[in-house]
Computed example of a mutant assay.
Amino acid sequence: MHPHLLAGRPPPLPHRRRPWQVTLRSALWRTRFAVAAAFLGVAAACIVQSLRPPDPPTSAVVVAAREIPAGTTLTSADVRVSRFPRSVAPDGAVTDPADVVGSAAAVPLATGVPVLPGLLADDEVRGPPGTVVATVRFADPAVAGLLSPGVRVDVLAATAEGGPGGVVATRALVLPVARQDGPGGALGLGGSGDASVPVLLAVSPTEAPALAGAAASALLSAVVVP
């Protein structure tokens, strides 16, 4: 006889596992609020994405990859390509780094500044927009070797008799100039201690005539200014 019958108790019912469908429905019911919130979040993200305006069209612009001193001959490591919105991309911007590699910076370039043709010194030797280039020989030939490209100077003119000097150019920009470094004839940029090499200055068009006149009749000197 079965032990449970001897004890006066009915035998236990056999254990039956719940169908997986029932288990799944139970789990979904317990987590219904979290599931609903997740679906609402996905729907809201889709709506925001669909309402966001498209990104504005951009243009490639070559910019300085680091701070570049004036007179530096640019290499591929000195420049990089950056994307600018077309509405703010500068006119005449260079788009291919190969177009500026080998050119020299006529003025100091800060990191991220577009490398525009007007900021480079080429065979034509140009100053910044709105300036003209003047050739100056100072009374002291050593001054040419002390002035590096990118420096700003006031040019003073004094008479040979020692009269008071007058300012003939204000904040003129020293430009790179090709020179011979030595007997080997290596081409470089910058000033020179040789009196035969002049200094190239970018001045305003109104200052150029006075500077030329003073160069013929006065002794010129330079004062470095900010």
Rank of each mutant, 00 (worst) to 15 (best):
P57D: 11
A60Q: 02
V61G: 03
V62W: 00
V63Y: 01
A64R: 08
R66V: 13
R66Y: 07
P69W: 00
G71M: 00
G71P: 12
T72A: 13
T72M: 07
T73C: 02
T73K: 12
T73L: 10
L74C: 07
L74F: 08
T75S: 14
S76V: 10
V79M: 05
R80I: 15
V81G: 10
V81T: 14
S82N: 09
R83H: 11
R83P: 00
F84K: 04
F84A: 09
R86W: 03
V88T: 15
A89C: 13
P90E: 07
P90H: 02
D91E: 06
G92Q: 06
A93C: 11
A93H: 15
A93G: 13
V94P: 09
V94K: 06
V94S: 07
T95Y: 01
A98M: 03
D99C: 01
G102A: 03
S103W: 14
A104R: 09
A105P: 04
A106R: 09
V107R: 06
T111Q: 13
P114I: 11
V115K: 08
P117R: 11
P117E: 00
P117H: 02
G118S: 13
L119Y: 07
L119K: 08
L119I: 02
A121N: 10
A121S: 11
D122W: 07
D123N: 09
E124A: 15
E124F: 13
V125A: 03
V125P: 14
G127C: 08
P128F: 00
P129D: 12
G130N: 09
G130F: 12
T131H: 09
V132P: 14
V132F: 06
V132W: 01
V133C: 01
V133I: 03
V133N: 08
A134D: 01
V136E: 02
V136S: 06
V136H: 05
F138G: 07
A139Y: 07
A139I: 11
D140Q: 05
P141H: 04
A142Y: 05
A142D: 10
A142V: 14
A142M: 11
A144C: 14
A144W: 03
G145A: 12
L146V: 09
L147P: 04
L147E: 05
S148E: 08
G150L: 00
G150D: 01
G150F: 01
G150K: 00
V151C: 03
R152C: 14
V153R: 06
D154A: 04
L156A: 03
L156H: 10
L156E: 05
T159M: 04
A160S: 15
A160E: 15
G162I: 03
G162V: 06
P164F: 09
P164A: 15
G165Q: 01
G165E: 06
G166H: 11
G166W: 10
V167W: 04
V167S: 01
V168D: 02
A169M: 05
R171D: 14
A172M: 05
A172H: 04
A172Y: 04
V174T: 02
V174L: 01
L175M: 08
A178C: 07
A178M: 11
A178T: 13
Q180I: 15
D181H: 14
G182I: 10
G182S: 07
P183M: 14
L187N: 04
L189N: 08
G191D: 06
